[in-house]
C-alpha cells in the first residue's frame, strides 16, 4: 500500500472522536472525583465526636460543644475547632457549651433541629441576600462563620441590642423580628420566622460554622480592626 500524504488535523472524524473521548473521559473523572469527595463530605455522627474523628462536615450534635475557628499548624490555615483547642488548632471534643440552655441534645434531636434549620434557610430564601459558604447574593453578610462573629458574642453590639444574654437567643430573637433591630439602613425583612424555626436556623448556623472550609474566610474575626463596632466609630 502506497503511503500518501493525509491530513489528520483537518479531519472531521478525528476531532469528533477526540471530542467524544475528552468529554466522556472528563465526565468519568468527575464522577470518580465525586465519589471520593462524597465520602469525605458526608456528615459525621456523635460516634465520630466520641472517637475524636475529624470530619469535614461534623455531626449535628456539635451544637452541644464549644466551637472556635483557629489556626491549625498542620493544615496551614484556620479550621473549626470543636470542644476546645489543644494549642495547635486541633479539636479536643471535650468542652461543652449550652445551646438554648442545654448541652445534651441527642443525635435525633440535633438532626431534627438541623433539618428544620436547613429547610427554613431554603424556605425563606436566605441565599438571595446572604452568602452561605460564600455562595449566594452579596446584599447581606456571609453566614459561613456567622456563629463565630464577634458582633454576636458576649460584648458584641448585636447581642446587646436584642437584650438577650446568650448568642443563640440573641440570634433567634433577631431572626424573628429583624425589623425591630435596625443596624444599618439595609435591614433584614420580616420573613415570618417562627420561634421554632429560629432555633433550627441558629442550629444550622452553628453547624455550618463547624464545616471545614479549607480556611475560608481567611482571618475571620481574628483581625482586631475587623471588629469596628459601628457605634464607636
Amino acid at each position: 500500500m502506497s503511503r500518501k500524504k493525509v491530513s489528520v488535523w483537518s479531519d472531521n472524524r478525528f476531532w469528533q472522536r477526540s471530542a467524544t473521548w475528552v468529554t466522556g473521559f472528563a465526565s468519568l473523572l468527575l464522577i470518580w472525583l465525586t465519589f471520593d469527595t462524597m465520602g469525605q463530605i458526608s456528615m459525621g455522627n456523635q460516634k465520630d465526636i466520641d472517637n475524636h474523628v475529624v470530619k469535614r462536615v461534623p455531626s449535628a450534635t456539635v451544637i452541644n460543644y464549644k466551637v472556635e475557628y483557629n489556626m491549625n499548624n498542620h493544615r496551614g490555615h484556620e479550621v473549626p475547632v470543636i470542644g476546645g483547642d489543644d494549642g495547635k488548632g486541633n479539636s479536643l471534643f471535650k468542652v461543652k457549651e449550652k445551646f438554648f440552655g442545654r448541652d445534651d441534645y441527642s443525635q435525633k434531636e440535633a438532626d431534627a433541629l438541623l433539618h428544620l434549620g436547613k429547610l427554613a434557610s431554603q424556605a425563606k430564601n436566605c441565599m438571595d441576600c446572604h452568602t452561605l459558604l460564600g455562595n449566594g447574593a452579596y446584599y447581606a453578610p456571609d453566614l459561613t462563620k456567622a456563629w463565630l462573629d464577634p458582633a454576636w458574642g458576649k460584648n458584641g453590639p448585636m447581642q446587646a441590642m436584642t437584650g438577650k444574654s446568650t448568642k443563640e437567643e440573641a440570634m433567634a430573637e433577631f431572626l424573628q423580628h429583624p425589623g425591630k433591630y435596625p443596624t444599618h439602613a439595609r435591614m433584614m425583612p420580616n420573613l415570618g420566622i417562627t420561634p421554632k424555626e429560629a432555633v433550627g436556623l441558629v442550629a444550622f448556623l452553628k453547624h455550618m460554622a463547624t464545616i471545614d472550609t479549607n480556611g475560608f474566610p481567611r482571618g475571620f474575626g481574628k483581625i482586631k480592626e475587623g471588629v469596628v463596632y459601628a457605634k464607636t466609630k
Partner: peptide, 29 residues
C-alpha cells in the same frame, strides 16, 4: 463543523473539571 468539534473537545475538556474552582471553600477536599 470541524471547528465545532474542536471547541467541544476544548470546552468540555476544560469546563467539566473546571467545576473544581467552585469546590475550594465549601467543605470539599
Amino acid at each position: 463543523e470541524m471547528w465545532l468539534w474542536i471547541e467541544v473537545a476544548m470546552l468540555f475538556g476544560s469546563g467539566i473539571l473546571g467545576l473544581g474552582h467552585h469546590y475550594f471553600w465549601i467543605g470539599t477536599p
